[in-house]
Design a protein around this nucleic acid. Structure first.
Lengths: 262, 262
DNA sequence: TTGAAAGCGCTACCAG
DNA sequence: CTGGTAGCGCTTTCAA
């Protein structure tokens, strides 16, 4: 691996001119450009991105924080984000959210100039470092989940309307005895979906008790368990999970069809 | 954001000493260390990782190339790799393999010193830039799929034995009229599984025709279609896909249970 | 259009 | 144990 300086020597120009050629069409004579490009091609020159980043104060990378991919929704987001980031001529730095540790690592990466910005998909009520980062005005965008009590750029679904829509569907079909099994309120998604659901039921005159809006992790196992507990007290209880042939169908949800194999 | 130099001024030491403190316990007096740490804490100093990388010639990042995550096997690998990489105090740079373009981008990242090494999970027979990179001795490790005709570090399953095991299972149950629907031979996985399968069948005296080892993408749709075509010519044909109640079950495979929701 | 030169913020060497 | 200093490879003035 040689440097711009060496390319310059070969091409018989100054290193500054090599830099100009690399950056595209700054003012460089045809002759100089030709010779520099020839030298670059000959030696397979690739500019040192670290040095450039240091000089320009831009890393060219965007961080993404997502969950372990046993939750199939996250790969979908990850893929979409990757595409967009790549199309913007940026790179993706990736952190698996393992609680506050990795979240903090991602945020630290902003401050250490490793990434130019961070997309955060796993905000929870307990994300201390995230909250602090947003309050400091660090370049963080919340995607999927939002965070109460801080202003921030964010991209989320309308979970309130979503929960309400499910409630309306139930009510329209005469189901008035319901429980919500929709994750926990530590995440804005779960909180808002539940809120939309329970609010609609309350408006319709069928308020849900606390016991019928349990806090569960976003897993099918936990949802199944909550549903079973709920069923014991109310045999006819329904919920956000769908059932079939007298039993819950333990299956993926949310991410749509995922039809491909290894 | 201030720099080590500024921290040094505040602490009344040289910038070199600040650097020593940051790097842990090089020889620094208690007094100096205390004052530097105090200054760092006061101003929330975070060292510039780009500058460090440039100086040390190590970026601290490992690249990972994987597929779009509609193929559920890749998130699983991605997660495992992320964990390992993080535990080694490194970061993950991520590329979605979209053919040779993004593959080349990932490899270029090695040469531009953005990453210290690359884990490549989507090698195909057509991966020109990957092949070139391996031949140049760039730090690339193949995971999941290997590449014919080049020596390289790699981590793969024993697909040959896998295909043979499926064949044995079929033969043990008296199924001698079979087709293999297992991806395409552009990937080592598909190629080796098929090879293991057909070889065992041939050994048992039931050679498979070309028509019964079709080349398909690694998708359920493609597999289903191939199976249907195959069924037309041989009503009793079986294959690597599992079926139930007279129809193929169009479902995920490979990655094991993936029970969680959004 | 071009080259010289000044750094970006850090690490690591070398004297003291 | 400490400070001075020389770069890492690039971008970007500033003169020429």
């Amino acid at each position: 691996m040689l440097t711009g300086k060496e390319i310059a020597q070969v091409a018989g120009v100054s290193q500054a001119t090599v830099s100009r050629v690399v950056q595209g069409s700054t003012r460089v004579s045809e002759e100089s450009r030709r010779r520099v490009e020839e030298a670059m091609a000959t030696f397979g020159y690739v500019p040192n991105a670290q040095a450039r980043a240091m000089r320009t104060q831009r890393s060219g990378a965007i961080g993404v924080v997502a969950y372990e991919f046993t939750n199939p929704w996250y790969p979908v987001m990850m893929y979409a984000l990757s595409r967009e980031i790549t199309q913007a001529y940026l790179r993706v730095s990736f952190w698996v959210s393992d609680g506050d540790n990795s979240e903090q690592a991602a945020i630290e990466a902003i401050r250490s100039k490793l990434i130019d910005g961070l997309v955060f998909t796993t905000a929870t009520r307990e994300s201390q470092s995230l909250r602090a980062a947003l309050e400091m005005g660090l370049p963080v965008v919340l995607v999927n989940r939002s965070l109460e009590g801080v202003t921030s750029d964010r991209v989320t679904g309308d979970n309130l309307a979503g929960g309400a829509a499910v409630a309306d569907y139930f009510l329209a079909h005469g189901r008035t005895d319901a429980a919500v099994v929709g994750g926990g309120s530590w995440a804005s998604t779960g909180r808002e979906r539940r809120e939309g659901f329970t609010q609609r039921f309350a408006e319709a005159g069928f308020p849900l008790t606390e016991a019928h809006q349990p806090e569960t992790p976003f897993t099918h196992d936990a949802g199944l368990e909550a549903w079973q507990v709920s069923s014991q007290t109310r045999p006819s209880a329904g919920g956000l999970l769908h059932h079939r042939r007298g039993g819950l169908r333990r299956d993926r949800c949310g991410a749509g069809a995922r039809p491909e194999g290894p």
